[in-house]
Nucleic acid binder design. Sequence first.
DNA 1: TAGATTGTTAATCGATTAACAATC
DNA 2: TAGATTGTTAATCGATTAACAATC
Lengths: 238, 238
Amino acid sequence: MSTEPTDHPTSVVGAAGRGIPGATVARLPIYHRVLGGLAERGIVTVASAQLAVASGVTSAQLRKDLSRLGSYGTRGVGYPVGHLRYEIARELGLTQDWRVLIVGVGNLGHALANYPGFASRGFRVAALVDANPALVGSYVGIAGHQLPVRPVRELADAAADSDANIAVIATPAVSAQPVCDRLVAAGIRSILNFAPVALSVPADVEVRMVDLAVELQILSFHEQRRAQNCPAGQVVGA
Amino acid sequence: MSTEPTDHPTSVVGAAGRGIPGATVARLPIYHRVLGGLAERGIVTVASAQLAVASGVTSAQLRKDLSRLGSYGTRGVGYPVGHLRYEIARELGLTQDWRVLIVGVGNLGHALANYPGFASRGFRVAALVDANPALVGSYVGIAGHQLPVRPVRELADAAADSDANIAVIATPAVSAQPVCDRLVAAGIRSILNFAPVALSVPADVEVRMVDLAVELQILSFHEQRRAQNCPAGQVVGA
DNA sequence: TAGATTGTTAATCGATTAACAATC
DNA sequence: TAGATTGTTAATCGATTAACAATC
């Protein structure tokens, strides 16, 4: 019964048939990153209390999350940093090679193509595409891994040549849906969308959206609320 | 009792003492953006069912969220697009002017300074700071609103001169905490962090973090799972 | 009046927390 | 053995959903 691959709404069935809640999946990258920092500092073992503080969660939450992956800790001792990090990477699919096609090489696409945090976590920028003729043919990317910008009409070829399995949309909002349609037609089934529009896709395609302004708007909400709670004219800081 | 400003864990007390759950606050920017699209197309009234589909939520969820702001819909008719959008903007604090200080004008900081989605939603880039002498003194920004890059030693002055009330950290990971400490000392209490490290701040400072790789990692999880569920060798798409 | 749609209630569902037995 | 810490249980908490009375 517990190994039955159900269609449980917010949980996802893993390799061994374990259902991992979406809330836990969203925290695994955080633990993965924090464990990387500990490993760099030569730390070999970590207790749930320490790892939890560094991750911004409670130790109960951390242990509950980790217990879904398996039993990698040792009672009375803690968790092995390297091994736990590997198991999280494996669960997230970071032990395989991801080839990313970036569509839209404006300011944001350029920044993403150069972002060291992608490569360091196993995401290789495999192809670049843009609609602007002035950009097409230029080379973009981190030193030692430069790529030519290809015209948008070659999108399907670029996807096929690079064998991309994830696409990033970094175009203006108006181009995002047409680009998305072409990506889907080209066989891409995982899309990260930075354009501030919701995309419609077939059910077997996964789209995640990052709206850079949304976090600023949420911050605005909290800052405004703080200003309202304190009477005007208060001192602004230390 | 219901107007008492409690310290309820995940809800936030609004102007009129209403507690708005964090989950609702996180969706308000989405509704705000979708309503903007409807307004552009000249749509004056919208039913919860339509707005919900465009926002990717259920109509029950949408009505429940909106009911926390007040009673702006008309039974049998729907919601007034312009007015509802205004009320959401007011709740989010978007009716006031936000001045943003960007620290780190590398690829990402450059992209953020040029991002039209900030200005269009009421966030004005007010000052730029970088540690790289080669960048200091250069002008960056959208045409008609260019700003000089100031040296990081002038961070406090830049914050004061521009009267910034939000800061964005777009530096490498190692610089993020020291920069954060200086921002807090300069009186900034709302920080959006793009560096992939957790920042420690006093309790009265609000930090939100955007790790550009996290969404890619979550996408990786789902893509991997899909590949595992389908036997190898399947056709890749239409 | 008849049809449509909101705002709200009550039930369901999932996620978090605290506590502790298991065990290193 | 004594101390520490995990993995799990049961209780709590919050968020979502379905249904419908209110009402335009």
